[in-house]
Design a protein around this nucleic acid. Structure first.
Lengths: 249, 249
DNA sequence: CGACTATTTGACGTAAATCAACGTAAGTGG
DNA sequence: CCACTTACGTTGATTTACGTCAAATAGTCG
């Protein structure tokens, strides 16, 4: 009954379906998954677009899991400059800092209307104590998330603006559509937010998107993302899905 | 007897000494630490500066710990562009990908002459099975390393070249000298390597270093780094040590 | 409808890349 | 010891990518 919070095709329907290590529930056995989902549903909250529901800086007090909508992790400097360091999609835990009691330097904000579940440390530890599987799944997911950050660093550090934006679009496309079945996927982020995620200004991001539209037919209208020739764009952006934690390749 | 491989002042000598979560051995009790260090010494290897001893791409076959010297994690695109994604200093594990059997997208290379220890998966699992402490220490250290990557992403994404290089120098300074006791620390990386770590060309990194030398008295001569007024540089670079995993602040 | 918020375009300035030398220290072999 | 090599650092001239400032257009939601 929690399946709706993870709006992917149910695994059973697709012979070729693969699970992603990012999605916690997909990596649990029946019993553990039931406990996990029950705990999440008990602590559900909603936030409207733009709301920052977890500030940066101090030791985090809650652990968040996205149920519906997108969350962005970002860092803001005193002078106002912002850098988005990751997007969290449904099924994903935002970070594991609470578990290790490590201070969280990024803030969490709702990128669209979101439903999130949040646990305090005692609840999280209690769940984890009921068997090793959940902890393993959380750790794996967090390692994948770290891989993604590293991938963004590589993108931002050595690729052109075009390649960077293309890479981000490829990532967001594949995360929602690992088998390229859907012609389009959701894209709640605005151009300004895509810019903050790629280290560009919104003006330049706009021009880059126009460029990618002309060269690859990429469309980002109406909160939807279309990539007609995914292979071409992926090649151009040096995108390889290996880091996203799917159980295939 | 392994103390020499981690060339810091012994903890006992300094009332104010703090341990870093990055340094695995510092976070183990006596018995676990002894097993850990014994296992490392059994598998010691040396590499000369520039040697790439772990390629990127496939599932890693070995787990590496730095005993002496510096290691760089980097990614290289087919066209030759390189991005350094992290420096590993003595006492640090390079990555935990082998434990989770996640493919490693970065390569490991010796930045100076290095001694590293390497374990295969069986050896690593065997060590971990002897008690929960080691695994906990490894995971913590890996989370801190992930924080550092995220910090680099923020630096690279939204800071000026000057701030970025300054931030990196602050980080490297503090990691070797958490209490600002030593006037200078080691800096085996060349300007070209600092450039690759900050997303600049070596030419521009050179100019930026000259600029920082004039403005803050920073010196990077002879593989040594001096930062006379650390506070000023840290403020300029928006550097805050909180993400480095020291048990204080 | 009006008040937003998001996207798009233009003109211009600046930071950083690129290309091309040249300097300098450290090592190597005769 | 000197000639030679190699790696690293430094500088200048030029080009390009990207940021900044400003304004117009297009959606979106009450």
């Amino acid at each position: 009954m929690l399946d709706q919070v993870v709006p992917h095709r149910p695994q059973s329907l697709l012979a070729t379906s693969s699970k992603s290590a990012l999605n916690i529930a997909q990596n649990l056995d029946q019993a553990t998954r039931a406990r996990w989902e029950a705990a999440l549903l008990r602590s559900e909250t909603s936030f409207s677009r733009g709301t920052c529901f977890a500030p940066a800086g101090d030791l985090p007090s809650r652990f968040f899991v996205v149920l519906e909508g997108w969350v962005q992790k970002y860092r803001q400097l005193p002078d106002g400059r912002r850098q988005v360091t990751g997007f969290c999609l449904p099924g994903q835990a935002c970070d594991l800092n609470l578990l290790f009691q490590i201070s969280r330097r990024h803030a969490l904000a709702a990128l669209s209307s979101v439903r999130v579940a949040s646990l305090d440390r005692a609840q999280l530890l209690d769940l984890i104590d009921q068997g090793p599987d959940l902890k393993e799944a959380l750790l794996r997911a967090d390692m994948i998330a770290a891989n993604m950050t590293s991938e963004w660093l590589v993108s931002t550090g050595l690729k052109s603006a075009q390649e960077r934006v293309a890479h981000l679009l490829c990532e967001l496309f594949i995360r929602q559509n690992p088998f390229l079945i859907d012609p389009e996927v959701g894209l709640p982020a605005t151009q300004a937010e895509l810019a903050e995620a790629t280290g560009l200004t919104s003006v330049h991001a706009n021009r880059v998107l126009r460029d990618l539209r002309m060269r690859f037919g990429v469309s980002t209208r109406n909160r939807k993302l279309q990539i007609p020739d995914f292979g071409a764009l992926a090649k151009y952006a040096h995108f390889q899905r290996g880091y996203l934690g799917f159980d295939d390749s």
